[in-house]
Computed example of a mutant assay.
Amino acid sequence: MATSEESIVLLTDGAASLLAAKTATSILRYRGENVVAVLDRSRAGQTTDQAFGVGGDTPIVAALSDVPDATTLTIGIAPPGGRVPEDWRAILIEAAGRGMKLVSGLHDFLSNDPEIAAAAEKSGSVIYDVRRNNERDLAKAKDLRDDCLRILTVGQDCSIGKMLTALELIKGLTARDVDAKFIATGQTGIMIEGDGCPVDCVVSDFVNGAVEKQILANQHHEVLIVEGQATISHPAYSCVSAGLLHGSTPHGMIMVYEVGRENVHGVEHVPLQPLPKLIEAHEMLAGLRMPSKVIGIAMNSRRVSEEEAAVERERMRGELGLPIADPLRHGVDELVDAIEKLRAEVKSR
């Protein structure tokens, strides 16, 4: 899907929050060498570091004409429902007319838009709808190997840091010369990794099988870190989370939570489940397929100070008796230690 020569413009025009622009911020963090600009008329003239806290001096521009040599326009938001903002269509048509590749992770497929598709056909532009798939495999629950350790990031909520945690774990394991592979299961992860499966756009009967297919195709690696989606307690998205859990059949899980978040993202009138209850529920649900334990906690402490994060870390260590770290503030060594310990235990069985 991606090449090292790509020069990407990220489209976030008018996105009001970091959560809305999480696709852009993640691509800036993990594929920043390919990003030449962000297109956002409301922030033009700023750098991405000023606007999003990541990306360094990457400029924010007001128009495609400001980056004439860019080869790819990537939609940088992940809004609820995944719809294309109406006032973006002119920008997308212009990009297609210029012959730029269009990359979108939205549920609304750009290739289904007659005007965008016509502009792309005329110029030879390629449209890549990341969520488009034809997955039709049922899970078989066989041929999974214990010599390839499977770790799934799970969460207290959606949009909480499961992908970031998974990618940081990959970096931590790779630094220890472990052959680790990131299994992307969402649109942003796929844009970063270049492969994977968009599980929230797979027909429900085939979610487990689609995830299992990713596992079977990558078992030649020593460790697979599978990107989690939402949570099994989310009123809207629990079906995806449960299918992902059973399809990946993890040996262990890393639970992700955000300090200070009290209500479910997207349905704010619903309170979050407490972590001990969620850990127990995940272990029970995973155990219907294979015994699996939460072996560590990834803490998202973006809302609090460094000092408050340190206090919270010690409090949760005492409450849960598990390794805990904010991957960005503290690094992932403590969590990687837990993975290495589990790997040794599985090997000795």
Rank of each mutant, 00 (worst) to 15 (best):
N134V: 13
S104Y: 13
D113H: 13
S125P: 14
T185L: 10
I77L: 08
E135M: 13
V126A: 12
R89F: 14
G82P: 02
D113A: 05
P68I: 07
R89Q: 14
G124E: 05
S111H: 11
G155S: 08
L92Q: 06
A95N: 13
R89D: 08
A118N: 00
S125H: 10
A166F: 02
G172F: 05
M191Q: 12
L73Y: 12
S104C: 12
A78K: 04
S111Q: 12
A90Q: 12
E115M: 00
S123C: 06
Q187R: 02
R150F: 14
R89C: 11
A90K: 12
M191H: 08
L92M: 06
L164I: 03
D195L: 00
R89K: 15
V130K: 04
I151H: 03
R131C: 07
G155D: 04
A166Y: 05
G194D: 00
R176S: 11
I170P: 09
V130W: 04
E193S: 11
L164Q: 00
I190P: 03
K122A: 13
L144M: 11
G105Q: 03
D108Y: 04
C158F: 01
A70R: 13
T188I: 04
A118Y: 00
K122H: 13
K171P: 06
A70M: 11
E193T: 09
I170G: 03
V154P: 03
N133I: 04
A184P: 13
A175H: 07
Y128W: 14
D147F: 02
V130A: 05
K171V: 07
L102A: 14
A119G: 04
D147R: 02
